[in-house]
Nucleic acid binder design. Structure first.
Lengths: 183, 183, 183, 183
DNA sequence: AATGAATGAGCGTTCATTCAT
DNA sequence: GATGAATGAACGCTCATTCAT
């Protein structure tokens, strides 16, 4: 019966990504249960609190993101890899979720060193890897730090707007990230 | 008593900017009343609906933003004016509110051409003005359009994060907006 | 300034009859003020409580009703006078108010022997007068008492429905009130 | 747990009949919950809207009424059956609810052909059946139509007052409904 | 005396969370 | 383990009533 439970857990997480991706924190737990095709009780058995569910959803999302980024990084040309990943993280469908990632964290009380933070760090590290390779290849300006790059990704990922406008905005930012004239 | 009422209206709007800036649409009307130091009934007397209150808050915010931008634009040097305003709109304390401005507007039903849209247009126009002056002065890349610039401002304004990181991210973006090498 | 006040009081009462006649007890005091063209404060100055206002409205209505009935009673033919008044009380436009008259009276606490009751009694007496004259003239069945007649009037006055249906229902009741075969 | 739910639903409906019978539409949902001994949430789980609850209450009431009437109609003597049912519908304890049945239905918007209307029609039909049998048996005046009879029932059912007075008023009305002298 | 702004209890409704089945 | 009914705090909003002007 362990496998049933595991399967349910996964369906709930998938549904949660849909719902919270669409409505942010305002999405209801009941809607998640409905889309997952399970009872509300089942959701709460796996995730004792809405906040826990939201966090797990974010963790899952960030983990996938990091994996993709890492995979991309393995590939050949450093500058292109950096830029492609940047683009992908910004427009990746589920990126909407990044929104939720920014939500209030006050009073976490549970001493839990926060899994979310850990997952976010993983993403950061993937970005960092790509960034420094790009810089070593002389394809990305040397004075940019992960902090800024990561923030730019998050900011653009949350931006509403026409796909084409977003794309051009990304072009501009990537221009800003290219090596400076004098370099 | 007219003056008392006006004063209260203003206190409510100020409180609303705080609350909705902090919690987005999820902020509660009651919290607004609490922070404004008035009864809940007073809030509803001035703004018959939560949605109306939110809209009024946004309009107020955008109007101030546009005014500031326009004032700045009058000043001398075109490129500097553009860049300073860009920075200011991103970090202006209450900029958080831009978040709310992006919230759902579905089914406005009231034929009202929407004051919010009008106010947003005003801001856009101010940005447009600054942008084209900057371009004419050869200080801003010629192929950038308001759409992208405006989106970049909004995206960065909503970004959470260290002040210094944001500042450096803005530097990068402004570099991306400077005239291209070949130009 | 006494006359101003008196005039206002009357306008409020007239407005109240409209509003409570239309919406029953659910009509709002503010709506009354609006229709009377005065501030809400003025309404409460004259009638310290909504309940008092409602009662005053009912008293006014019942008083007018009694006067009309009495006037009608003076006239010539006894049976016709009885029947005409019966009809009139049932369909009189403001009769709707009778509805309100039936509303909860629990816990009046104010020792006031209740003006409403007094006014209702006046109406009852007018009906009684008409009834006994009709009976003496042999035009109304002898065994009917005011209680029943008065209740029938109130019941029919509150009935919703087509005017013509109400009229025919009244015909039936008046037939029931005509002298019995054997009499 | 299905049975618990059903039981609760019934307790809620019973409580609602009490509350709305006593206060009309002004009765509060919370009071219904209190009298049913359940939480407010439970009421809303079973009836998603106050309006739905009120309608369900009326439907239940009217359905019982129609059943009783029909059962009575099966019995032998036509005139007696008509008169007994008339009496019963007027004085049946929960008849108070008829009041609610007359409440505003404006803008139902839901295309639903309205269950309430359907239930009311059922009652009407039961009355019609009894009426025409009574007329065929020569025990009820031939020119009376369901419309009037139905309205008289509703009017008397809503009348406040002494039981004995109501009874005698019904006698009078039934006299009015007996065959005319000339017939 | 009149005004209308302010108040807050109360209502209908939603939703995270608990618990009997 | 899973289910979904039950709970009640919280929200948006209304309205009788009070009180500064």
């Amino acid at each position: 019966m362990r496998s049933d439970a595991r399967a349910n857990r996964d369906r709930v997480l998938a549904a949660a990504e849909e719902v919270f991706g669409e409505f942010g924190n305002a999405g209801s737990t009941e809607e998640v249960a409905r889309r997952a095709g399970v009872g509300i009780g089942t959701v709460f058995r796996h995730f004792p609190t809405k906040r826990v569910l939201v966090k797990a959803t974010i963790v899952r999302h960030l983990t996938l993101l990091a994996e993709t980024a890492r995979a991309r990084g393995e590939g050949g040309e450093a500058g292109a890899a950096f830029r492609e990943t940047f683009r992908e993280m910004v427009s990746g469908a589920p990126a909407k979720l990044a929104l939720v990632a920014l939500l209030e964290e006050p009073a976490d009380s549970t001493g839990s060193a926060d899994e979310v933070e850990a997952a976010a760090t993983t993403v950061r590290e993937a970005v960092e890897e790509l960034l420094s390779r790009g810089q070593q290849a002389g394809e990305v300006r040397a004075d940019a730090t992960v902090d800024e790059v990561y923030m730019l990704i998050r900011a653009l990922a949350n931006a509403r707007g026409d796909r084409t406008v977003v794309d051009r905005a990304v072009d501009i930012v990537l221009d800003g990230l290219s090596p400076r004239r004098s370099e």
